[in-house]
């Protein structure tokens, strides 16, 4: 599973971190999301899909 994050869209809501904190984090200075792991292992799939689904601006894309 490969994921991409569009930081231009991100509004720093933090929903993705709440859903999958081993894959996403936020920058200290402005809260914009960062990817900790762009190719998470399959057992993380459910939480990564949840993170992508709850992001209010759809900044997270999953390329199977």
């Amino acid at each position: 599973m490969k994921i991409t994050l569009d930081q231009d869209k991100c509004v720093a809501s933090g929903q993705c971190v709440t859903a999958a904190d081993s894959v996403f984090d936020q920058r200290d200075e402005d809260g914009i999301a960062v990817l900790l792991d762009a190719e998470p292992s399959p057992e993380r799939e459910a939480e990564v899909r949840q993170a992508a689904a709850v992001c209010p601006v759809l900044a997270i894309r999953i390329q199977s």
Binding site: A12, S13, G14, V17, T18, D25, Q26, R27, G31
Partner: peptide, 10 residues
Amino acid sequence: GIPKQTRVRR
């Protein structure tokens, strides 16, 4: 102006 630290308190 401090999103990350705010979420931590959630």
